[in-house]
Design a protein around this nucleic acid. Structure first.
Lengths: 129, 129
DNA sequence: ATAAAATCAGTAATCGTTACTGATATCGAT
DNA sequence: ATCGATATCAGTAACGATTACTGATTTTAT
């Protein structure tokens, strides 16, 4: 069950690395199809899942019912704009201490957390004016 | 478009209030059907959405692809067990300060955050022994 | 009681995603 | 370089959660 090289997988990862807006599977499909017109949506899903499983990309569940994907696998947080739905990387200091706060009165074992922030992005704030 | 009273909606909310494990729409349906056998799954979904919209219950998106519902609308955090999938309320001090941490270098406006914790619950830790 | 309209049960449709199928591409061994 | 095993493919069907539709039934203000 060794992993074999595939042109399609490369294209998917290359496309993802070229974007910093965390596209969905469908957006990946639309774009990769521009240069590889006969690629299948199933192939996109399969490879995104595979790449996420082997840790080369990150799957983001941001509560909008659709999975987003991010080629940046470093630990970082995301902001989701309530107006435009855009997803933006946040540069911020580490907040892992919230796990210790949560652990204090809890008898299970906390190993991680999922956090994202929401509000209005700079772009949408300007648009209102 | 005034809200009218409905027996079905009451039963759904009553059931939800009787549980602290944050059931899914399907679980609500299964249980309410025990006492109201001809209730429709669509009715359950419609009323859960309506109750959430008017703020009487909370919709939880915990990343497992299914919506969970909680009659406790106070702000509180949840723990999701990686082993059994169970959802447990956490008693913990306020961590809203993470929003200020996130805001520091961000030019949009952060109004909220979504956080949940994961790991192994006490029950599953004992089961391993 | 009556009538307008919110709600219902039942079912079909939608959407994101996954599974299946027979064909194709990759890659280590020859 | 070619072979054979098998991972991957394109295409499509199936899936599960959720939403939308429809004509019948309840609710509630008059």
């Amino acid at each position: 069950m060794a992993l074999k090289h595939s042109k399609q997988r490369d294209m998917i990862k290359d496309f993802l690395m070229s974007r910093k807006d965390h596209p969905t599977a469908d957006v990946v499909y639309m774009n990769v199809r521009q240069i590889q017109p006969n690629i299948s949506l199933g192939t996109v899903y399969r490879n995104l899942t595979l790449l996420a499983d082997i840790g080369e990309i990150q799957r983001l569940r941001l509560g909008d019912g659709v999975d987003h994907f991010d080629a940046d696998i470093s630990e970082h947080y995301h902001f989701v704009c309530n107006d435009c739905g855009g997803v933006i990387d946040l540069e911020m200091e580490n907040i892992d201490s919230i796990q210790e706060v949560a652990q204090k009165k809890f008898d299970g074992h906390i190993t991680g957390h999922v956090t994202h922030f929401y509000g209005t992005c700079n772009c949408c704030m300007k648009a209102v004016k």
